[in-house]
Design a protein around this nucleic acid. Structure first.
Lengths: 347, 347
DNA sequence: TCAATATAACTAATCGATTCACTATTTACA
DNA sequence: TGTAAATAGTGAATCGATTAGTTATATTGA
């Protein structure tokens, strides 16, 4: 024996099902007397609206599908948090689909077609569940061409780059955050600033590189070719490339690492050579991962607006569902430089 | 104009809706001829079963609600990952509800009733969505008495302690993992081993303390009272308590920190005093957070079976849904000691 | 060959809401 | 006071599947 139904409430209150529905939805005026009786019956039986039946009738589920490349990717939980907050405030729920791509297709651009079809399968699954809208969270800002646009279900991309003006995407500003943190070092009077980059073909790498170059150019500072080192986002590349830099005839006085993990590698290299941070070497990172505040001295870095990306993506999706016309197609949110203890003027 | 319906497929294939349903579900035998015609029609119209209508009829949604205290809590994404993997393999989807408790009720045991009612609201929301089952993920192993058991919807607890034999819970073994990592130090021939504990009233703290004591007792090693330091799980308490320990007349040669973050604090304190890890001081942590492999030298720690907790919780829930009788009520999974470079024999 | 049985397919009730079209009642106004 | 307009309430169709109960057809064995 299941829960009470609207029919039972109607009988108990001595009204029609229609009236019960109108009381509960508030879509039509009902006299105070009958309204009272209905609400009493609801109270008495602990009645709960059957959302499934409602969905069937209205063909709206009030559920948003969230497709993530990997829930264990670092920025992802915060983005999901933002999405969840915005949506639940509007009465929507989140159906989560995790593709678990972290150890599978990570950075394997050659397997692009396999990657795209995995995503499309995920979208299909959410479509089958009849979600009202979909948010797709990429871990890195990738191209998303070739992704199947579901019919009648709006799709918003978080953390992905799309050139398609018809689709909505929300990301953050790689170029200017890199510009800003480089500026921070320049203002401290550093002249010899080196860079440890991420994967060559990542678009984050390209934009962070251009931001770095822009700041250096603007300050009239030369960047010797050997000051640009190529890493792979991982700890060991940070360590190795810092070793290279510190072995140069004229070593840099500051290093910009393109993420906090490689910056942790810088710390290890400096520690081995008995160099003090920031006295002998200033180091900055990117991403403001937890590790940044557990390194000693605490790492100066760039905080990404992850939660805000989630909030914004959800907001734009809700706007689209409401049929709003003017929605910015490609939103780029600013980042914040977090100054901690790993930077100081050069000796 | 929406998607095709079963009725349309039936007309197109020249059969009844019932036959279409039987072909698609495979619940009754259908002659090859008609089956073929149905499948062709499905192909042609790109028909997709309406799961909402199915749910209304069968009163099963094939959706599991996952209620999390905070998706941004460190072990949470991995647990969700495990749950999602197990469930999607069985054709279930995950409806996520994030309570965002991280900065609200964290460790405020005095606000217990508020905490419980927040959880109950979350459970209510999932009930309203007509989920087939619920998994509740606590961030720390808390008591869960007073949580509303939904009628007819099985509920499994991940990472929580329940004495109620009727409810299922899946957690990990705090006592023995602490015992094991203490043993690791003992085997390296350490005699003077100190402990930096977490919050006094946390049950994780109590169990990890008892495991530590058990190992020390068994080895006949005395633990002076000043070797047991009380922290609060955060970086600074690790730093401060290590300072206390290293200022003692007879300082320890090894420190067990009850989490990796406090262990990072130990590193900072050692670094300040120009002590080398592991030559001058061995340090171990708990939880195997990412920071453990970014500290230099890499931290020896205890890896929690987070993903497995998720997999197991989901498996037990599925068993319950299948009506299986024998399901272990309180499962405690073992942890693994990860030996890295922060431990060595004392000088 | 014919009744008995097995198989294939169909008809229609059902799940629990929403909402259009309609009736009954009240209110407004000339 | 009488008619038009506004308001409150109801009946019943509908959303798109599942499945019990029934009928039509094919198969079997005596």
């Amino acid at each position: 024996m299941g829960l009470a139904t609207m029919k039972e409430i109607a009988e108990l209150a001595g009204v029609s099902v229609a009236t019960v529905s109108y009381v509960l939805s508030g879509k039509k005026k009902v006299s105070p007397a009958k309204r009272e009786r209905v609400l009493n019956a609801v109270e008495l039986t602990n009645y709960k609206l059957n959302t499934i039946a409602k969905s069937l009738r209205t063909s709206k589920t009030e559920i948003i599908g969230v497709l993530v490349e990997d829930i264990c990717g670092l920025p992802v939980p915060e983005i999901v948090d933002g999405i969840n907050q915005m949506l639940s405030d509007s009465g929507y729920q989140v159906l989560l689909n995790n593709l678990q791509l972290l150890n599978k297709l990570y950075n394997q651009y050659e397997q692009l077609s396999q990657y795209i079809s995995t995503i499309n399968r995920g979208i299909q699954l959410l479509e089958d569940a009849r979600v009202d809208g979909i948010i797709y969270i990429a871990m890195h800002d990738r191209r998303i061409d070739g992704i199947h646009q579901p019919v009648n279900i709006p799709l918003v991309f978080a953390y992905a780059n799309s050139d398609d003006p018809a689709s909505l995407s929300v990301s953050y500003d790689n170029h200017f955050s890199s510009y800003d943190i480089t500026q921070h070092l320049i203002q401290l009077n550093h002249k010899r600033i080196a860079l440890i980059a991420g994967h060559t073909n990542s678009s984050a790498t390209k934009l962070r590189l251009s931001g770095f170059r822009a700041a250096m150019n603007e300050a009239g500072l030369h960047v010797p070719q050997e000051y640009i080192r190529w890493g792979d986002w991982e700890f060991h590349s940070g360590l190795e490339q810092t070793n290279m830099l510190l072995s140069l005839k004229i070593p840099p006085t500051a290093i910009v690492a393109m993420n906090d993990v490689m910056a942790a590698g810088c710390y290890a290299a400096a520690y081995k050579r008995k160099l003090s941070i920031p006295e002998d070497l200033s180091v900055v990172g990117f991403d403001n991962q937890p590790v940044a505040s557990f390194l000693y001295p605490n790492l100066t870095t760039v905080a990404l607006p992850n939660k805000k990306i989630g909030l914004t993506a959800a907001k734009h999706l809700l706007w689209r569902l409401e049929g709003r016309e003017k929605i910015p197609a490609n939103t780029t949110l600013p980042c914040t430089v977090i100054v901690r203890d790993s930077t100081a003027p050069p000796k």
